[in-house]
Simulated assay, not measured.
Amino acid sequence: MRKPESILASVIVVSASLLAHAAHAHSIDEVLASKTLTVVTTASSPPHGFMDPASNTLKGIMVDLAQGIGKQMGVTVKLIDVPFDGLIPTLTSGRADLMSAPLFVTDERSKVVDFTTPVYGWGEGVVVSDKQPKHFGRLDDFKGEKVGTLVDSVQYKMIKDLPGTQVSTYPDYFSLLADIRAGRVDLGVVDPPSVLYQIKLKSIPGVKLDDAYHPQKSWFVAGAVQKNNQPLLDAINHAIATMKQDGELRAILTKWGVANLEAK
């Protein structure tokens, strides 16, 4: 499941091409007139976003954030669920006005979308089998190991060129954790909040976070809009700022057990 760098590069090229020929997302005036904000998210990453089987509705941190933004703007939020690698293309094609998903802000992504102010963030973590005798404290410890991570993730970009490391990519954490438990990969480089939530939610045995690992980087999650839609971006940033000031954002993060990750 190795993903060549050329394919990764093509993702940005395709996104840029889509941007150049994109249908325009709604302007702030159109959003307010229609009283509807169309938001793309993903159900592939609890607790940030997932499909609740009991209610068959989307839930999670970024879903709650989108609903909060809609409330601040006085509009109804219409959610679109896509796979992780469909988030940016859905936004740049004009099928959504806002992206609210666990996508880290990076310079590369900022070339094709405009991010809002940061909402929350964290560093990478390492998950291993509970039978793994070794500890991995830093990236150099991965040498000679089979390592898994999510496709097109910032963690993949961190580890894809590590010498002596065999890197495999996965569409979701459930399949990655299954391969770690089965011994098909030695460790996974992951988003700790997502993995801890999945282990708890799905009662996944046989895997654990390696407490010896120290994050090498940290990133922030933010919303995003199409390029050159500044008035809409300003309105969304104002909504986020209000949510921070009145404690609504902190309440959302507390609800999902990650209050300590709020961006200041």
Rank of each mutant, 00 (worst) to 15 (best):
residue 1 M to C: 10
residue 2 R to W: 12
residue 7 I to A: 10
residue 9 A to S: 13
residue 16 A to Y: 02
residue 16 A to I: 00
residue 21 H to I: 12
residue 22 A to C: 14
residue 27 S to C: 13
residue 27 S to F: 13
residue 28 I to A: 08
residue 28 I to L: 15
residue 31 V to G: 04
residue 31 V to L: 07
residue 34 S to G: 07
residue 36 T to W: 00
residue 36 T to N: 03
residue 38 T to I: 12
residue 40 V to Y: 03
residue 41 T to L: 03
residue 49 G to C: 04
residue 57 T to N: 07
residue 58 L to T: 06
residue 58 L to F: 03
residue 60 G to E: 10
residue 61 I to L: 07
residue 64 D to S: 10
residue 66 A to T: 13
residue 68 G to I: 14
residue 68 G to V: 10
residue 73 M to V: 14
residue 73 M to K: 06
residue 75 V to L: 02
residue 80 I to P: 04
residue 82 V to P: 05
residue 83 P to C: 06
residue 84 F to W: 15
residue 86 G to Y: 08
residue 87 L to Y: 05
residue 89 P to K: 10
residue 91 L to T: 06
residue 92 T to P: 01
residue 93 S to E: 10
residue 94 G to M: 01
residue 103 L to H: 02
residue 108 E to N: 09
residue 111 K to H: 06
residue 112 V to T: 09
residue 128 V to H: 02
residue 130 D to I: 08
residue 137 G to R: 10
residue 138 R to V: 02
residue 140 D to N: 09
residue 146 K to L: 04
residue 149 T to D: 04
residue 152 D to G: 11
residue 156 Y to N: 13
residue 166 Q to T: 15
residue 166 Q to I: 15
residue 169 T to Y: 08
residue 170 Y to F: 14
residue 171 P to N: 08
residue 171 P to C: 08
residue 177 L to R: 09
residue 178 A to T: 12
residue 185 V to C: 03
residue 185 V to I: 11
residue 186 D to E: 05
residue 190 V to E: 01
residue 191 D to A: 10
residue 202 K to M: 13
residue 205 P to D: 10
residue 208 K to N: 01
residue 210 D to M: 03
residue 211 D to K: 14
residue 212 A to I: 04
residue 213 Y to F: 13
residue 214 H to A: 07
residue 219 W to L: 13
residue 220 F to L: 09
residue 225 V to A: 04
residue 227 K to D: 01
residue 229 N to G: 02
residue 230 Q to V: 13
residue 233 L to D: 02
residue 233 L to S: 03
residue 235 A to V: 03
residue 237 N to S: 07
residue 238 H to Q: 14
residue 243 M to W: 00
residue 250 R to H: 12
residue 262 E to H: 04
